[in-house]
Simulated assay, not measured.
Amino acid sequence: MRWRLGEILQARGLTAYKLAGQLNGKVNRNSVYAIARGDTDRVDRATLGHLLSALGELTGQRYTVGDLLEYSPEEESAEAETAATLADHPDILDRVERLESGAVRMIPLEEVAAKYGVKL
């Protein structure tokens, strides 16, 4: 799932700053900015209600939770695939970190082939 609040604000010529002002302290400004950027995973029902109400007041339109969130099955399956890969290879992140830090290096295929006399 992904947040669409930033897109809605932009399409209506509004900013997260303006929305936060309309909320008048009902929702923390930093939370409004994070939601508009799509940087938050959890929001309580009261916050959703306040966001929808403030959007309606600013635009004169009625918004629903479905307007704020978009579900993409492909994204969910990609996340599940990543989780499965990490479960199958619990040390993979450590390996990547060691590679990036220079503690280990990738051996080029040509170097391996030359060492063992294999022609590519």
Rank of each mutant, 00 (worst) to 15 (best):
G6N: 03
E7S: 02
E7G: 01
E7F: 09
E7M: 06
I8P: 00
I8E: 05
I8V: 03
I8K: 07
L9S: 05
Q10N: 09
A11S: 12
A11W: 05
A11M: 03
G13I: 14
L14A: 04
L14S: 04
T15N: 04
T15W: 05
Y17V: 12
Y17F: 10
K18C: 04
A20I: 09
Q22T: 11
L23V: 02
L23S: 00
L23W: 09
N24F: 13
G25H: 11
V27K: 03
V27Y: 01
N28C: 05
N28A: 08
N28L: 08
R29W: 06
R29M: 10
R29Q: 05
N30Y: 10
N30W: 07
S31H: 06
S31I: 07
S31A: 06
S31G: 05
V32I: 09
Y33I: 07
Y33D: 04
Y33T: 04
A34H: 03
A34G: 01
A34K: 06
A34M: 09
I35K: 02
I35H: 00
R37A: 06
G38C: 06
G38F: 14
D39A: 09
D39H: 03
T40E: 03
T40C: 05
T40L: 04
T40S: 03
D41T: 05
R42A: 04
D44P: 03
D44S: 13
D44C: 09
R45A: 15
L48I: 12
L48R: 08
L48Q: 06
G49H: 14
L51I: 05
L52F: 13
L52I: 03
S53N: 07
S53G: 07
E57Y: 08
L58H: 04
L58S: 01
T59I: 15
T59H: 15
R62F: 15
R62L: 11
Y63L: 13
Y63H: 14
Y63T: 02
Y63F: 15
Y63V: 00
T64L: 14
V65D: 02
G66K: 07
G66R: 11
G66N: 12
D67S: 12
D67N: 15
L68R: 04
L68N: 04
L69C: 06
E70D: 12
E70F: 12
S72L: 15
S72E: 12
E74Q: 13
E74G: 05
E75Y: 08
E76D: 13
S77R: 15
A78N: 11
A78Y: 07
E79T: 06
E79F: 10
A80I: 12
A80Q: 15
E81M: 13
E81L: 15
T82Q: 14
A83P: 01
A83L: 10
A83Q: 14
A84V: 08
T85Q: 09
L86T: 03
L86H: 10
L86S: 05
A87C: 00
H89F: 15
H89G: 01
P90I: 11
I92N: 03
I92E: 04
L93Q: 02
L93F: 04
D94S: 09
D94H: 11
R95L: 15
R95V: 15
V96T: 08
E97N: 10
R98I: 11
L99H: 03
E100S: 11
A103N: 09
A103W: 10
V104C: 02
V104H: 03
R105V: 11
M106C: 08
M106F: 07
I107M: 14
P108D: 12
P108M: 12
P108V: 07
P108E: 14
